[in-house]
Design a protein around this nucleic acid. Sequence first.
DNA 1: CTTTAACTTGCAGAACCGCT
DNA 2: AGCGGTTCTGCAAGTTAAAG
Length: 327
Amino acid sequence: MTAQPKSIVIYEISKNKAISVPLEHESVWLSLDQMTELLNRDKSVVSRHIKNIFAEKELVRKSVVANYATTAPDGKTYKVDYFNLDVIISVGYRVKSLRGTQFRIWATKTLRDYILKGYAINKNRLIDTGIDELGRAVALIKQTLDSKVLTTVESRGILRVITDYAHSWVMMHKYDEGEIKISGKTKPKYALTYDEAIGFVHELSTTLHAQDAATKFVGMERDDHGLDRIIGSINQTYGGKDVYKTVEEKASHLLYFVIKDHPLIDGNKRSGSLLFIHYLAMNGLLFRQTGERTINDNTIVALALLISQSHPKDKEIMIHLITNLLG
DNA sequence: CTTTAACTTGCAGAACCGCT
DNA sequence: AGCGGTTCTGCAAGTTAAAG
């Protein structure tokens, strides 16, 4: 495996010096030489610490080491061991130096929360590429969602990844932008009606029941006309103008309201997602000109989970997030 | 077989810790 | 303060592996 890892600066030593920590395969990997620089110690010292870490069975070698090929100045390639975050932190704790101390403080503070996700994000990166990062988070869980039936523990874990991620994203944006604007530029040409919507919901519940994948309450309306109200509100006009002007905006609110207001006894996430997809499709926004989906099923699953976990005060940022993903 | 780079090991000094 | 022990450290000298 050859790797020229994408670098992200995450560890600032001082105002004008920082160490680049490469991100690869959803984790952080450093070679011996890089750790030497990071921790400001002789290579032999780092080497010895690593050896001890494995000798003392603090970590198991094969689960934390990757073998890459690097190209030396002479053009030859050598195999170099890359050590993951666990090793970097372990060595960091053994090294006695100012650098080591700083690293430990930084690692404990900054990294711990991100280890779960497998990668670290610094503030600027988060602001610049927040939406891409969510996409990455979604991609990360994609395999899991695709490949197997989830246990409760696993789905909780995945949920935590999404919500943790979303939380940081929300915080950063709130802090740095102050105000959130809702985007989108597609004019609606199709309006969803209640009858149509409830038809879809019933269809969904029939399908799910046929697959034995739902309780009998899925698709059953609560008795407060919630769904009707939601559809009314996304079609709502004020002074002859739509309150929500674009398809992106309307679709986002539709998804958000169905999940958050739970007009159905059960199956709100699934129904909301279905109506969301339907609404996008009818307004020609589900597919790009290339025929590729604007928003794939996994992303919608992630969004649905995210919305259901989100705090009501973060409604605008959720809407913002969805409209951006549609953009 | 030689060169080169990556990595390990031997060694001695320094810092530290608990104990007397 | 002095002692024995441990851990960490850099240097120098080693081994290992890739490739001409």
